[in-house]
Structure formats: C-alpha cells, structure tokens
Design a binder for these strands. Structure first.
Lengths: 166, 166
DNA sequence: TTAATTTTTCATTTATTATTGAAAGTTTCG
DNA sequence: CGAAACTTTCAATAATAAATGAAAAATTAA
C-alpha cells in the first residue's frame, strides 16, 4: 500500500473512532495527523493537509490542547505556532481516561448522590433508590479503577492481568 | 426531593451520559426509564412518559434490543408488547463493553493491521509504521482486557484490584 | 377471511452540531 | 507608534443526526 493511501486511511479511521468517543471528527483527524507527523505542524499545514478552514483548524487545535493531547511548540526565530502530539499511546490513553472521568463520570456521580435522598417508601421509590444506589456504587468502583490506571506506569496494568490469567 | 423530580433528573442525566457514549439521548432515556420501572412498559407507556412519537419510541427500543440492553416481554392474553431492562449494573457494563468492542475496537484493529504493509522506508513511513504498530499493540491489549472483563463474574475484577492495592 | 389492533417503515421536518470566512484582536518588530 | 504576521472569535451557513407522523405491513381474534 502507498504511504499516502495508508495515511488517509489512518486519518479517516481515527476520525470515525473519535466520533464514537465524544470527540469531534475533525478534532480526531487533526490528532491523527499530528500523531504520524515527524515534525511539528502549523495551523496552515493542518488546514492544507485536511482541507479545512482556518477557524475550524484553530478551534479544534485549541480543543485538543484542552484535552491535553496536543502541545504548542515554538520554533526559534519564527512567529508562527507549531503543534505536536505525544506519541506515547499509553500516556494518550491515560490522558483520555482522565479527561473523560472528569467530564462524564464525576458529574454523573454527583447527580447520583443527590438522588439518594428522594422522599417516600412506595415500591417505585424503593426500586429507584436501589437502582441508583447500585449505579452509584458501580460508578464509584469504576472511578477507583480509573484512578489506578491514570496513575499507573506503562504496562503495570497489563503485566498484572497477564499474571492473573495463569 | 420528590420522586417525580428525582426520576426526571435521573432520566436527564442518563440521557446526557448516553450522548457522550455514542448512544442517542432518547435511547438512553428510554433505558433509564426501564431501569427504574417496577414493571414492564409498553411502547405507549414510553411515548407518554417521555413525550416522544411512536416512530421514535419504536426505533430506539429496537436499538436497545440490538445492544442487548432491553428485552421484550409478552403478557398472557395481551397483544401489546412490553419491555424490560436488566437491573444488574455489572451485566449492563459487560454488555456495553461487549458491543463497543465489536462495533469500534475490532474494526479499528482490522484497519491498523492493514496499515502495517505500507511501502517505503522514508522517515515518514518509519514513523507511521511505528505509531500505528504501537496503537495496534495497545488496542490488542485492550481487547484482551475487555475479554477478561466480559467473561468475568460480578466483582471478580474489583476484588482483584482491591487486593493489589494493599 | 376480514376487521381490529399493534408494529414498522420512511419521506419529510426539525433540531443539533460542525464549518466557514471575514472581521476583530493580538503580538512582534522596525 | 504603525504595519505586518498571525491568532481568535463569532454570526451566518452547511452538514448531520434525530424525531415526527401517516401510511404500509404484520399479527391476532372473531
């Protein structure tokens, strides 16, 4: 397979994976582009490569920086900003886990806790309390596990799991 | 807090969690409704409760059944179909993991493997191969871990992790 | 078989989200 | 300062996704 073809396929695949992960398609595509780039890219480079507008490029690069997936890099004697993505996939996964925990799991836990003090003791209310309590417990355990993961060193987790299997 | 208020909050929260998980808002809301319901609900019940159209209700119920999160239940001597959601959160999580693995991880792994036979040995191609190889390896490990999880019994996983922590 | 009831489909409409591009803002340097 | 180089914002537009509702299809009972 030709490089250009492979590159396009990768960017496309990463983009569509993004959409099912609450990350916009273009954002994921920019990330893909930076992942496989051998050098930092400017906004212009990204616009050119993905055929998108300046505003679009700018906003999605900014979002990637918010997620902690991309960093700004300044070149000596150059005014223009360049961007790089970390290439360590383990770090990438941890960063995504961290952000999603903050953006999704934590707000949900907050709501679930509030729901525990619903009034009444009808069948409906009992069921409601039970289900939300179970979800809350589960979410709490998920949070602990994620914390473990987020603070772990590369392979710590898999090494552990592979031992257990035996 | 009043039951009705709590219920609405829960349905809302579950719905918005859904959107960030590649599940449509309405689909997640129907699921939430069934989760806290003490008895099977008909399409009519769901339309009424969530104020949605028949077509919308029908399609999202169907999607929930595709995901294996909701089942049809027939009442003796009744023509109309009723629906229930499993209340075991552990089972729910496993089912979601299973479906997402099938829908997202596996297609991605397939693409990544194809990308390994890109031609050339320029700096760019080397970097490309390295990055995609790393992602592929990571995704493979993630798949193993998910398989472990999907086949595990309730709490197996957490019991394990809590032991390790000490 | 026919009529009543219920489910499904799908073209149209509506709502949501993403993108554009030009204008405004910012930074740097002579 | 003032102009050039670059970045950011945001109202308008376009693209995408979800919802509606009526018609068609399927199912069941008489």
């Amino acid at each position: 397979m030709k490089y250009q073809e492979a590159k396009d396929k990768f960017i496309l695949a990463w983009g569509s994976l993004g959409s099912s992960w609450g990350v916009s398609r273009t954002m994921a595509q920019i990330h893909a582009l930076l992942l496989i780039s051998t050098s930092p890219l400017s906004t212009e480079d990204i616009m050119e490569e993905l055929q998108i507008s300046r505003g679009n490029a700018n906003q999605n690069i900014r979002a990637l920086m918010d997620w902690g997936l991309v960093e700004k890099e300044l070149k000596a004697g150059e005014r223009r900003e360049y961007f790089v993505a970390g290439k360590d996939i383990w770090e990438l996964a941890k960063q995504v886990a961290k952000e999603r925990k903050k953006r999704e799991l934590e707000p949900m836990l907050k709501v679930l806790n509030q729901l525990q003090d619903v009034d009444g003791d009808s069948k409906e209310v009992k069921e409601f309390k039970e289900v939300t309590k179970n979800i809350s417990d589960f979410a709490g355990q998920a949070e602990s596990t994620l914390n473990l993961f987020i603070n772990s060193k590369q392979n710590w987790f898999y090494k552990l799991l592979s031992k257990i299997k035996l």
